[in-house]
Design a protein around this nucleic acid. Structure first.
Ligand SMILES: [Zn+2]
Ligand SMILES: [Zn+2]
Ligand SMILES: [Zn+2]
Ligand SMILES: [Zn+2]
Ligand SMILES: [Zn+2]
Ligand SMILES: [Zn+2]
Length: 647
DNA sequence: GAGTTTGAAACT
DNA sequence: CAGTTTCAAACTC
C-alpha cells in the first residue's frame, strides 16, 4: 500500500496571472510563448518553496566533465569524407539522444523547453565508444563537433543538426535528414555539442529554452537516411520539423485539445475535420482564443519553463519544470501520456502524480530510456542496411508480416518478436517495481542482440584494422551502415552496462539484507519525500561526484514512451561485459528496494535464449496489488479554461 | 488499422 | 473546487 505517493504538494500555486498578450497577431500566443520564455521570471520560478528539496533535482554528474576539444584537434585532418562522417556521427548522436524531442517539436509549442539530455553517463559512454570507434577507423580522430548554431534560437527543442557538415544527402542514398537543411551552416542551428574521446561526455546543447513556434518550424531533426523515427506514429503524424499534424475530429481545432491550436499555429497539413484553426476562420478562432484566455490567462503560455539558457551554458538555470505538473495515475510517468515525461523533464513538486518513476535516478526511467535508445539505434541500423541493399532482419518493428507466405515464414523465423514480451515486461516494471526481473530479462535480450550483431556480416570488428579506410566504398551506403551499426552496438553496451549496474545494486541490497525484510518492501518511491532519498546515492560516494552544489543545468530526463525490443538470435552467451570505463558514472540511484515482483508474476514465457540467466533469487513475494483505480480525476495541469463558444 | 488506455481539457 | 464527460494522442494488438 505504500504506493500512492504523490509527487509533491500542489501547494501554492502561482496564480500569477500574467496577462495575455494583448496584441495579437494571428497567434495570440506566439508572443505569449516567446515572452514567457524570455522570462523565467514568472512567479514561481525562483521561489521554489518548500518541498522542493525533496525532489530529486538534477544530476550533478552532468555538469562535470567535459573536455572540449581544442580547435586544433577539430581542425586537424578533416577530409571531406571525414567531415561527412563526423557530421553524420554527430547527427546520429543527436538523433539518438534527442530523437524524441525532435519528434516532439510540436510539443515545444507551449514552450516545452529543454529537452533533456539523456543521462549523462549514457551519453558519455556512447560518445566515448563512438569516438573510439572512429579513432580506429580514422586513426586518431578525437572527437566530433557539431557546429553550434551561432544563434541561440535553435530548434524547437534544442534539436540539433549537424551544421553544414552534414553529409550531402545527394550522394548518399536517400539521406533525408529531414529538412534540416544543411545548406546553410549555421543558420538556424541550435547549439552544438562536443564529444570528447577521453571518456568525456557529450555536451548537449539543449538547455532549455522555448523557441517561438515559427522558428521551430524550420528546424528538423537529423535522422538517418530514410529512416523514420523508430516509432513513427501513424499516419500523417510527425513532421520532420517536429510539428505534428493533428487529427481533431470534434473540437474544430479550437480547443486546447488541439495541439496546433494550443501551440498557436494554424492547422496546416493536418487531418482535422471541420477545422477552424485557420485564417479563413480567424474570427471564430479569435473568439475561441479569447474565451479560453478569459478563463485562464495562462492558457497559452508555456507549460514548461525553466531550462537553462544555451545548452552549453553550463550551470545554468533551474531545471525546467512543468508549471502545473502532471497528474498521472497509471503510467508511472514513464510514458508519453505524462506531459512531464513527454517533455523530457523530471516530474517536480508541482506534479501530483502517483507512483511516479520519472525522477532523477530512477532505474525504471533509465531502463526505459535505454530501451528507447536501443530501439532507435536498432531501427536505424536496420533501416540502413536494408537501404544498403543487404536486407537484414525483417524489420522487427513492423508488426506481423503481411501477406507473403514464404517471406513471412522466413521473417517470422528470424525474428520472433520479443517486442511484445518486452513491452509486457516494461509494463510490469512501470506498474510495480519488477526491476530485478526485468533487468535480467532485458539483459538477456541485450546479450542476444549483441550476439546477433557480432555475427553480422558487416561487422568488421571495431578494433584494428585496416580495412577501415576502405570500407566506405564497400557499400553504397558506405560507412554509414557501419556507423549505424557501431552506434547500435554502443547503445547496446551501454544498455547492458546499465542493466548490470542496476542488477548488482538490487542484488546487493536484497542480499545485504538491508531493508529486505519483507513487508517493508518499500517501493521505488521517489526520493522526494520518501525517506530513501539520499541513501540511494550511497556508494557513488567514491565517484567524483562533481560539484553538485551547483544546481546543474537541466539534465533532465529524456525520451518518452517505452519500448524494448531486440531480436533474438541463436545462441546466447550470458556474459556481461563491463562497459568502457565508466567514466561518468554517478548513477546514483535511489529507488527503493522494493523487492520486486514475484517471479511468477513476470511471465516471460519462452524466451528463446538457451540460458536463462536464472532470474535471481528474489525474495518473498508479496504482491503489491495494484489497484486499479479507475478513476480519473481531472484537474490538472495546464490551463484550464473554458471555451465555451461553440462547440 | 481498429480498439484500448490515458490524462488533459472542458464542462457541470 | 470536485466530479464527470469529452477529446485526441499514446499505446496495444
Ligand atoms: Zn486540431
Ligand atoms: Zn492541426
Ligand atoms: Zn485543424
Ligand atoms: Zn506524470
Ligand atoms: Zn510530472
Ligand atoms: Zn510523475
Amino acid at each position: 500500500m505504500v504506493q500512492t505517493q504523490r509527487h509533491g504538494q500542489g501547494t501554492g500555486d502561482r496564480a500569477a496571472a500574467m496577462e495575455p498578450g494583448g496584441q495579437g497577431p494571428p497567434q495570440y500566443h506566439a508572443q505569449a510563448g516567446a515572452q514567457a520564455y524570455a522570462g523565467i521570471a514568472n512567479g514561481m520560478t525562483a521561489s521554489a518553496p518548500l518541498a522542493q528539496q525533496a525532489r530529486p533535482q538534477m544530476a550533478p554528474a552532468y555538469a562535470a566533465q567535459p573536455q572540449y576539444l581544442t580547435q586544433q584537434q577539430m581542425a586537424q585532418q578533416i577530409t571531406p569524407q571525414e567531415a561527412s562522417r563526423r557530421a553524420l556521427q554527430a547527427a546520429l548522436e543527436q538523433q539518438l539522444l534527442q530523437q524524441h524531442f525532435a519528434a516532439q517539436g510540436a510539443a515545444a509549442r507551449a514552450g516545452v523547453p529543454p529537452p533533456a539530455p539523456p543521462t549523462q553517463h549514457q551519453a558519455a559512454a556512447l560518445a566515448a565508444y563512438l569516438a573510439a570507434h572512429q579513432a580506429s577507423l580514422q586513426g586518431g580522430l578525437q572527437a566530433v563537433a557539431v557546429t553550434p548554431g551561432s544563434q541561440p534560437g535553435g530548434g524547437p527543442l534544442g534539436q540539433v543538426y549537424a551544421g553544414g557538415a552534414m553529409p550531402n544527402p545527394g550522394s548518399q542514398a536517400q539521406m533525408q535528414f529531414s529538412a534540416a537543411a544543411p545548406a546553410s551552416r549555421a543558420d538556424g542551428a541550435s547549439g552544438g555539442f562536443v564529444m570528447s574521446a577521453h571518456g568525456g561526455g557529450v555536451q548537449l546543447p539543449f538547455g532549455g529554452r522555448v523557441f517561438p513556434p515559427a522558428q521551430a518550424a524550420a528546424q528538423a531533426a537529423v535522422r538517418p537516411p530514410g529512416v523514420r523515427p523508430a516509432r513513427a506514429r501513424a499516419s500523417s503524424a510527425a513532421l520532420a520539423g517536429g510539428k505534428k499534424h493533428c487529427n481533431c475530429k470534434n473540437s474544430r481545432c479550437l480547443k486546447l485539445y488541439c495541439e496546433c491550436f494550443a501551440s498557436g499555429r494554424y492547422c496546416e497539413g493536418c487531418n482535422c475535420v471541420l477545422c477552424n484553426n485557420n485564417k479563413e476562420s480567424e474570427a471564430v478562432r479569435q473568439a475561441a482564443v479569447e474565451a479560453i484566455l478569459e478563463r485562464n490567462p495562462c492558457a497559452f503560455r508555456p507549460k514548461i519553463q525553466g531550462g537553462t539558457d544555451e545548452g552549453a551554458n553550463a550551470a545554468a538555470g533551474p531545471a525546467p519544470r512543468h508549471n502545473k505538473g502532471c497528474n498521472c495515475k497509471k503510467s508511472g510517468c514513464l510514458k508519453k501520456y505524462c506531459e512531464c515525461f513527454q517533455a523530457s523533464i523530471f516530474c517536480s513538486d508541482n506534479c501530483k502524480c502517483i507512483d511516479c518513476k520519472n525522477f532523477e535516478g530512477s532505474d525504471a526511467r533509465e531502463v526505459v530510456m535505454m530501451s528507447l535508445m536501443h530501439e532507435q539505434a536498432r531501427h536505424n541500423s536496420n533501416a540502413m542496411q536494408q537501404a544498403a541493399k543487404r536486407p537484414r532482419v525483417a524489420d522487427p518493428l513492423r508488426s506481423s508480416a503481411t501477406g507473403g507466405e514464404g517471406g513471412a515464414a522466413a521473417a517470422a523465423a528470424t525474428v520472433p518478436r520479443p517486442r511484445m514480451m518486452l513491452n509486457e515486461t516494461m509494463r510490469e516494471m512501470v506498474k510495480r517495481g519488477g526491476l530485478e526481473e526485468m533487468c535480467s530479462l532485458l539483459m538477456l535480450v541485450a546479450q542476444e542482440e549483441e550476439q546477433r550483431l557480432a555475427s553480422e556480416p558487416g561487422y568488421q570488428g571495431l578494433s584494428a584494422d585496416d580495412g577501415a579506410a576502405d570500407i566506405s566504398e564497400a557499400q553504397r551506403s558506405g560507412g554509414l551502415s557501419e556507423l549505424y551499426e557501431a552506434q547500435e552496438r554502443a547503445v547496446l553496451q551501454e544498455y547492458q552496462s546499465i542493466l548490470q549496474k542496476i542488477l548488482e545494486r538490487v542484488n546487493k541490497k536484497t542480499a545485504d539484507g538491508g531493508d529486505a525484510p519483507n513487508g517493508a518492501a518499500a517501493d521505488e518511491r521517489a526520493p522526494g519525500e520518501g525517506q530513501h532519498a539520499q541513501e540511494g546515492a550511497r556508494d557513488p560516494a567514491s565517484q567524483p561526484a562533481p560539484a553538485q552544489a551547483v544546481v546543474p543545468p537541466g539534465v533532465p530526463p529524456g525520451f518518452g514512451a517505452l519500448l524494448g525490443g531486440a531480436p533474438p538470435a541463436e545462441d546466447t552467451t550470458p556474459a556481461v561485459r563491463p562497459l568502457h570505463g565508466g567514466g561518468a558514472t554517478a548513477v546514483g540511484q535511489q529507488w527503493a528496494p522494493r523487492a520486486a515482483a514475484p517471479a511468477a508474476r513476470m511471465s516471460y514465457p519462452n524466451w528463446p535464449s538457451a540460458s536463462p540467466p536464472a532470474p535471481p533469487p528474489r525474495a518473498p513475494e508479496y504482491h503489491v496489488s495494484l489497484p486499479q483505480p479507475a478513476l480519473h480525476t481531472g484537474g490538472a495541469l495546464a490551463a484550464g479554461a473554458n471555451a465555451g463558444g461553440h462547440l
